[in-house]
Design a protein around this nucleic acid. Structure first.
Lengths: 220, 220
DNA sequence: TTATTAATTGATCAGTCAATCAATAATCAT
DNA sequence: ATGATTATTGATTGACTGATCAATTAATAA
């Protein structure tokens, strides 16, 4: 009936996908369900997305874009390293990323990455961007240790996200964000037995850290 | 044909389940596939496990049992707090837990926990046990901060596991284990800006830390 | 042996779903 | 208007699969 331009319909279908994944908690939602939730026929969903996996990936790209936007916004006002880290932490555990739909999408996305190279690529983009942002943020306080520390902070973000995401008693992610800041403070204190160990980690991956926060695009 | 006692067949079917999940990377393996891989008919799989989800949970219990066994073995020889933490780290990133099959099972298990209360319960058992072991291990060096630090180390284990598990370039998990130890060392250094913050975390969850490493059973 | 129990099969049912496609309806350009 | 283009439908197909069950076979006991 109601005719809409391609771009709008695409995003409506993507939104419906995220909604349905959030409602059921898994990727076994049928295209029919999704289409219905979007108020269109299943045929249209296939018209715009060649198959189900493509649709899921598009949905995940939207989630990642939202996350990136949050980071970007919160980073704007952050002037000190401490504030910048807080921005990253708050974006990771903030309302956008911690809604049920985003959580479902994320957790299932990890599982999808196990069998879909496309999903894996997308996951790497997220990881690289996060790592890059963290290195940039940690450099002033950690110096050469920044890449090494960033790897732990990044891992901690993912791990705690998973924890609190799967904990029905956790109402929001603020506790997760607190932990990130505490971990970073611990890593940033001067006297580290670690220093000796992490010398070899001076820029372990030369391709990797770029001076400024990343704005990579998700395609490819 | 070949007749075997219940216990043996059960574990053969469970092993086949783990194998097939590992091979395909997702839970969409059919019971037929699993049965075939176990060398039995699909009917038998349903005879011993009332439905597919039950079978998956049984498989996951086996994975958790193997992990627990590894921790237990490695803990035996560990006398100092440092050695004990090393034991936990090595178990978490060791060969048993880092095989492709275990990785697939774990990642999909997280997704399953999103929709299955039974899976969620099982996941909590793992998390509580890990937390408990960490608190016990960290107490000597962290004192009152142990529960708080344990939450981060636990999260870091999960997060880094996910990272390296989904990284095809990572051959083993030894790098993950290294990170755990470094993070712990950072948290254990004396002069912490954190100390003031984490006072309120003195035993945040009274139900939680128990003096000795846990040997909870997985049922219920 | 014979009766009883336990293990195992495989065909079958009933339902589901991704993907296709021919047909229709709305919009636009001329 | 007219034709071309774009959006949209929904019926259909073809393949798949979880679960059931009646029948069969092997082991055990009496």
């Amino acid at each position: 009936m109601a005719r809409k331009p391609e771009a709008e319909r695409r995003s409506e279908i993507i939104d419906a996908t995220i909604r349905e994944i959030g409602a059921t908690g898994n990727l076994n939602v049928t295209v029919g369900q999704i289409a219905k939730s979007a108020g269109v026929s299943s045929g249209l969903a296939f018209h715009y997305f060649k198959d189900k996996d493509t649709l899921f990936l598009a949905a995940m790209r939207t989630i990642l874009t939202n996350y990136r936007r949050d980071v970007s916004i919160l980073m704007k006002g952050a002037t000190t390293p401490e504030k910048r880290l807080e921005a990253i932490a708050n974006a990771s555990f903030g309302l956008t990323s911690f809604r049920r739909e985003a959580i479902s999408a994320w957790v299932n996305f990890y599982a999808l990455a196990l069998r879909s190279p496309d999903a894996r690529r997308l996951l790497y983009i997220y990881q690289r961007r996060l790592h890059s942002n963290l290195v940039y943020t940690l450099r002033p306080t950690c110096g050469a240790r920044a890449p090494d520390v960033a790897r732990r902070i990044g891992g901690l973000i993912d791990g705690l996200y998973l924890r609190y995401a799967l904990d029905p008693q956790a109402t929001d992610g603020s506790e997760g964000a607190d932990h990130i800041l505490r971990a970073a403070r611990a890593e940033q204190t001067e006297l580290h037995a670690n220093d000796a160990m992490s010398v070899r980690d001076e820029d372990p991956n030369p391709m990797d850290p770029i001076a400024k926060p990343q704005e990579l695009n998700d395609n490819a």
